[in-house]
Design a protein around this nucleic acid. Structure first.
Length: 811
RNA sequence: GCCGGGGUGGCGAAACUGGUCAUACGCGCCUGACUUAAAAUCAGGUGUCUCCUCUGGAGGCGUAAGGGUUCGAGUCCCUUCCCCGGCACCA
């Protein structure tokens, strides 16, 4: 017998699959040809950062196992691949190395593609698409224009997170503890003219449609948390002197009588007007200027401070004037940028009141009577709490009081029920080079004018210097920058910001369905055929970014009539992190291990199987190469035993031999694990057990069936060796063989092992016929000498029989 | 603080709806075979303690800790501890 040499057989079969176009799939030529059993398998597309690491290997092998499993269960499986090729890292690498981002990224893509082929993943490469290709971003721009026309993309001046090191705006999702996620520099708040997508308009739709999704609970919980819907009331406070109304949002209208002061965010547009003409004016200006220079981190950690404006607002409930302050613990981005402060029932307001000696009025009392006045804020909701010091509402239970106060406010035109969200609109403009240009031209006369569809794509221009200087690099190419206004023909100026790469990845799954379409982004009937994605696999780190943005995109496209569905990803699975040195493996952390070396020494099949064998795919795992040897050993064993069986074992079947039974049990187990339980480590164990048993008797009459079963079941994990052995067993094209089906009759045995317990403890086991009546089982149990020893003449009070399992005697 | 996930051998981990002495499968380790030797390969062993008539056998204790439900709990309930992740000045 020849030796198992993965370096020989793996490229051989990869070539066969390519020649046979084994994993390519065409779109249906007509509706009649459509396959109702179509299945869209998708993993999150990789950022082409140089080489693959073990995290990618886990991600894509997982998808590969599902792909093979579904294909062999009769599904037409779409399993495409492409690259998230725009973005900062490529640009930063270009700056460092002095090349062009395009050259760097294209070299990386080529390398990664070859690594992917070497791993034998079943990918339809005809559908490859990458964000940076004009054929792709032409349609990113086209979609942007549709969003713009519909009012879902707009410009506004807004405080943004500005990273002074990367010289760019950073999305909320990528500010971690007040620092830029990429470089760790503390971010600053800056007011800038920015592009936004109106994702907040879809906050409720995004929440409501969660119940259509077969997603992990925790992912949905993270999104709910992120959207942060709170119900409460808007209450209007009046500034008599200035004839001004100031609305606030509160979740605690029940505490309105306890509102003893009022606070505006420093960025609030009315601050200037309120302070004007008071003796506090200079102090207010100074405070506003001072807080503007504070980093987000400082704002969040320092002791609360603020300044009195010299003005008063009237509490609509009490009719009393309360002082208006400005303080940066109030955020302009949430609610109305102003709050009613209730120090008795809010810890933040209490801290502020203590510092500045503002009055504290308690208006809610717990059921057990008055709490200690000096204790600080009583903010928790408790059973049976009641309103006090609240005029006509005193004595009411707090929840009822809240409702009555809102009613009362409504009838006096001073308030109404309201909902507020934590979610902000998605800021997507970036002052960087390597991204999709925004197809807008600014004209002095016409304002912002969309680039006409027929002029798309707006190609990314060549520039001399990508180095960001706070001004977008695109603006440095003046030949590109200044163009005639499409509307009036006078000189206009192109938008020089580029798009966030999350725009590119919010629709790539649609382009894969119809990747070569040069008339449209995609054909609706084709995306409606494949979409939504039946199984999406990717990291949970995208819960509030990519996954939320894509859902938003699809909802808008649905309303624009571009697609016939409202959710992109029907079912979602998160693979765990592959960690190294305790930290998640990633290029930015510099702690990556790639598969190349291991593929070289052990073969792709061993690497694929090992990464899934290491543990449950949805849990984090610490990368270690110890153990890969075990998988390599298993594959060599499989090779040896199957080869041996192929030449020596007889061909006739033995329908109820021990190996046949074991093979059917293994089919049942592997099918259930992959198909229903989504557990990818235990199928390998199960096949190992089968091979171990086969190894003990490789020339048994049913050895051949056991060998064929083992090869067939391991195929999704180790497709190359499986294909080679399948051929040696005298068959062809395992990749398109139907998935084996367990024979239920063979899983049922005519005898079973009866477990005999005394007081719940196992004392003996007997092999008994399956059809014995209960009474007989009990008799046999009692008759066991070991049971006799335990019974020791004691009286049996109860006997519990679990059919086909056990007898428990209670004494 | 709030919301999720998790704690099982020396290690990665099994045990799917409470029911076959919990620890499958693999790693590591130990013993043996083959070998001049090593590697590779193959065979066997491997939670812990106690006892016995000791090439074998019997029993106790063991799934973070404590309590509960049940004939029976790694699995269900309560309390506590620890680890990981998300959110957190969001009114």
């Amino acid at each position: 017998m020849d030796r198992y040499e993965p370096q020989q057989i793996e490229p051989k079969w990869q070539q066969v699959w390519e020649d046979e176009r084994a994993f390519y799939i065409s779109n249906p030529e007509s509706p009649e040809r459509a396959d109702p059993n179509n299945f869209y398998m998708l993993e999150m597309l990789p950022y082409p950062s140089g080489t693959l690491h073990m995290g990618h290997v886990l991600n894509y092998t997982l998808g590969d196992v599902i792909t093979h499993y579904r294909r062999r269960n009769g599904f037409s499986v779409l399993r495409p691949m492409g690259f998230d090729s725009f973005g900062l890292p490529a640009e930063n690498a270009a700056i460092r190395q002095g090349g062009h981002p395009r050259d760097i990224i294209e070299r990386n893509i080529e390398h990664i593609r070859s690594e992917m082929r070497r791993l034998g993943w079943a990918i339809d490469w005809d559908r490859e698409a990458s964000a940076h290709e004009p054929e792709y971003y032409r349609w990113t721009q086209w979609l942007f224009l549709r969003f713009y026309e519909a009012g879902h993309a707009y410009r506004k001046e807004a405080p943004v997170n500005w990273c002074p090191k990367d010289q760019t705006v950073v999305a909320n999702e990528y500010v971690i503890d007040g620092r830029c996620e990429r470089c760790g520099t503390p971010v600053e708040a800056r007011n800038m003219e920015q592009w936004f997508f109106r994702i907040t308009a879809y906050a409720d739709a995004l929440l409501d449609d969660h119940d259509q999704l077969d997603w992990p609970d925790r992912t949905i919980a993270i999104q709910k948390n992120w959207i942060g819907r709170s119900e409460g009331a808007e209450v209007v406070f009046r500034v008599e002197d200035l004839d001004l109304d100031l609305p606030v949002f509160t979740t605690r209208p029940d505490t309105l009588f306890g509102a003893t002061f009022f606070v505006l965010a420093p960025e609030h547009p009315l601050v200037e007007r309120l302070a004007a003409g008071t003796e506090r004016e200079a102090d207010v200006r100074k405070y506003v200027r001072h807080t503007a220079g504070r980093s987000t981190e400082e704002r969040e950690t320092k002791e609360k401070d603020g300044v009195f404006t010299g003005r008063y607002a009237v509490n609509p409930a009490t009719g009393e004037p309360i002082p208006i302050w400005v303080a940066d613990y109030v955020l302009m981005e949430y609610g109305t940028g102003a709050i009613m402060a209730v120090p008795a029932h809010d810890e933040r307001d209490f801290a502020f009141a203590e510092r500045y000696g503002l009055p504290v009025v308690r208006v809610v009392e717990p059921a057990d009577g008055g709490a200690d006045e000096t204790e600080g804020a009583f903010s928790a909701h408790t059973e049976g709490e009641r309103l006090v010091n609240s005029g006509e509402f005193s004595g009411l239970p707090a929840p009822e009081g809240a409702a009555r106060i809102v009613d009362w406010l409504g009838s006096h035109g001073r308030g109404r029920p309201a909902v507020s969200y934590r979610l902000r609109d998605w800021s997507f403009s970036r002052q960087r080079y390597w991204g999709c240009p925004i197809p807008i031209i600014y004209c002095d006369d016409c304002g912002p004018v969309p680039v006409p569809d027929e002029d798309l794509p707006v190609l990314l221009p060549e520039v001399d210097d990508y180095q960001p200087k706070g001004k977008p690099p695109l603006a440095s190419n003046e030949e590109w920058l200044f163009v005639p206004c499409p509307r009036c023909g006078t000189v206009g100026r192109r938008e020089a910001d580029t798009m966030d790469t999350f725009v590119d990845s919010s629709w790539y799954f649609l382009r894969y369905c119809d990747p070569h379409n040069d008339q449209a982004a995609f054909d609706r009937s084709i995306v409606d055929y494949w979409m939504p994605v039946d199984q999406y696999v990717g990291g949970i780190d995208h819960a509030t970014g990519h996954l939320l943005y894509s859902r938003f995109f699809v909802k808008v496209m649905n309303e624009l009539g571009l697609v016939g569905f409202r959710e992109p990803f029907a079912r979602l699975f998160h693979q765990g992190w592959v960690r190294q040195g305790g930290a998640k493996m990633s290029k930015t952390r510099g702690n990556v291990t790639g598969p190349d070396q291991l593929v070289e020494t052990h073969g792709a099949d061993a690497v694929r199987s090992y990464i899934l064998f290491m543990g449950p795919a949805d849990q984090d795992m610490e990368w270690t190469e110890e153990g890969v040897e075990g998988i390599a050993r298993f594959l060599r064993r499989l090779w040896r035993i199957v080869n041996e069986t192929a030449t020596t074992a007889p061909r006739e079947d033995l329908a109820d031999g021990a190996l046949t039974r074991k093979a059917h049990a293994t089919i049942a187990k592997v099918t259930d694990d992959i198909g229903r339980r989504f557990q990818f480590n235990t199928p390998i164990s199960a096949v190992m057990e089968l091979v171990n048993e086969l190894g003990r008797d490789p020339s048994a009459p049913d050895a051949r069936f056991a060998a064929e079963t083992a090869v067939s079941l391991i195929q999704p994990y180790a497709p190359h060796i499986a294909e080679e052995l399948w051929q040696r067993l005298g068959h062809e094209r395992l990749w398109e063989q139907p998935w084996p089906v367990a024979d239920e009759a063979l899983l049922e045995r005519d005898t079973f092992q009866l477990v005999i317990q005394v007081n719940g403890r196992v004392r003996d086991r007997l092999e008994v016929p399956a059809d014995l009546p209960e009474a007989e089982l009990i008799e046999r149990a009692k008759a066991s000498p070991r049971v006799q020893a335990q019974l020791d003449g004691k009286e049996i009070r109860q006997a519990i029989v679990v059919p086909r399992k056990l007898v428990n005697l209670v004494v």
